[in-house]
Design a protein around this nucleic acid. Structure first.
Length: 419
RNA sequence: GCGGGCGUCGCCAAGUGGUUAAGGCAGCGGCUUGUGGCGCCGCUAUUCGGGGGUUCGAAUCCCCUCGCUCGCCCCA
């Protein structure tokens, strides 16, 4: 039989890795609580239409990256490729919009059928924030600062924040017309990828990594010059407030995000330590989405952090930490093994971390394992001790030169230490 | 979807056409029927991702395929 293995682009998280994952999840949880942001959990599976309508039919995500299938009732289903559409759907469906503005966060797996590479998997995880019902530039700054501080708190260094204004729909429409006209004049000088994009999604050409196209674009019409007065003022406000908070940023006029629903402020937090997929956090304003998905006209802003990319950054700085029990129960002999089950449980009732050796191996073997487990104490139990309801407590941290401290005591006396 | 690199034990690896595929780590057993950190001894790949071919002979050469990886694309 062929070896069974995970599907392409999917990964197992092993015990040595889940420690870091839990650490990040706990920090995020605490961080959101401090900022008055509540968690929302939505299903991984949604109607395909939610994403085709929400994200945009023309985007690559919808066009060629979704995991879609017909279920047994012939419904067209899709494993969510991102979180925002689901959250908005849920907010509308459950009438949260009529309960005032919502500050929400979520975390969990997303699915995109892409070729895997560094920082890109088919199942990946995002932690995301959505402010729904908030239209002020201050809400953008608040959203950005929550992301920035979370990453800082986690100890990520070498981050760059880039922001840009995409303006309102009108601004963008006018700009698009002008840009396309200019690009068509310069069609021959574009690389072939950009030539195809010209029809599909011309704004994305601004993001091109092709050096000659990049050079060419320095002369292209600038989105900034097409922003309305209101759009400009709003963006200026964002810049001012970020500056007051001492959050360093850079305005990148070429920053255009790939999902159709973005408007006004868009931003990305990147790290040069990540390779080609350098965005750790990306987001922006999406004022039209709630209405587009059937809700009342509602402004909103959100972002998402890529967990795997964050992990890549963290495992560079942080020493690996493994779970270690406080007590390791060494036990051998019929009565001892039975008694040890009880000792383990009693210690855990007193909130102690206990690993019970289940091997029946020689004492020396078990002690060797106790030592490697990183436990502070070995608790030795043989039949002699079991008969007397006693244990031997041995300090595993004493240095090898000195004789190890060892103490024989009744189980109840050991337990008294914790009450 | 398109390019480049790679694929020998759970992990790290030597081997690049010729009798039994090094070694290290981890694991297991023992030296030590009840006392760790060190040491020593032993065991652990009929097989080199899978399939086909060339050859007297292949882990080593060729073809196909699968997977990993890096980049393009795309995005978190």
């Amino acid at each position: 039989m062929e070896k069974l293995q995970v599907l392409r682009g999917m990964v197992d998280l092993l015990p040595s890795e889940t420690i870091l994952w839990q650490h990040i999840e706990e920090s995020a949880n605490r961080h959101f609580k401090k900022a008055g942001v509540s968690e929302i959990r939505t299903p991984l599976l949604e109607a395909t239409e939610l994403f085709s309508r929400g994200i945009g039919e023309a985007t690559d995500v919808v066009g060629k990256e979704m995991y879609s299938f017909l279920d047994r009732g012939n419904r067209n289903c899709t494993l969510r490729p991102e979180g925002t559409a689901s959250v908005v759907r849920s907010v509308i469906q459950n009438g949260l919009t009529s309960q005032g503005p919502q500050k929400l966060w979520y975390s969990g797996p997303m699915f995109r059928y892409e070729r895997p590479q560094a920082g890109r998997q088919r199942q990946f995880h995002q932690i995301g924030l959505e402010f729904i019902g908030f239209g002020s530039p201050r809400s953008e700054v608040e959203a950005i600062s929550i992301a920035w501080d979370l990453l800082k708190e986690l100890g990520v260094t070498g981050l760059n924040l880039e922001i840009n204004s995409l303006g309102n729909d009108e601004d963008r429409k006018t700009y698009r017309k002008n840009l396309v006209a200019w690009l068509e004049e310069n069609f021959k000088s574009l690389d072939s990828d950009s030539q195809t994009r010209l029809k599909k999604n011309p704004l994305r050409i601004l993001d091109s990594k092709n050096p000659s196209t990049k050079a060419l674009l320095t002369n292209a019409p600038n989105l900034k010059d097409f922003l309305s007065k209101e759009s400009k003022e709003r963006f200026q406000k964002v810049e001012d407030e970020l500056t007051k908070l001492s959050i360093p940023f850079e305005v990148n006029p070429m920053l255009v995000r790939g999902l159709d629903y973005y408007s006004h402020t868009a931003f990305e937090i990147t790290s040069s330590d990540l390779g080609a997929q350098s965005t750790v956090c990306g987001g922006g304003r999406y004022d039209g989405l709630v209405e587009q998905l059937g809700g009342p006209s509602t402004p909103a802003i959100g972002w998402a952090i890529g967990m795997e990319r964050l992990i890549l950054l963290l495992s560079r700085n942080e020493p690996e930490t493994y779970y270690s029990p406080t007590y390791y129960l060494v036990n051998r002999g019929e009565q001892a093994e039975s008694f040890a089950l009880k000792v383990a449980r009693d210690l855990r009732y007193h909130n102690q971390n206990v690993e019970l050796d289940l091997s029946s191996a020689a004492f020396s073997k078990q002690l060797k394992r106790a030592d490697r487990s990183g436990a502070k104490w070995a608790v030795l139990i043989g039949d002699t001790e079991a008969k007397e309801h006693e244990v031997i407590l041995k300090d595993l941290r004493s240095k090898k030169e000195e004789r190890s401290k060892e103490e024989r005591l009744k189980l109840k006396d050991l337990l008294k230490r914790f009450s």
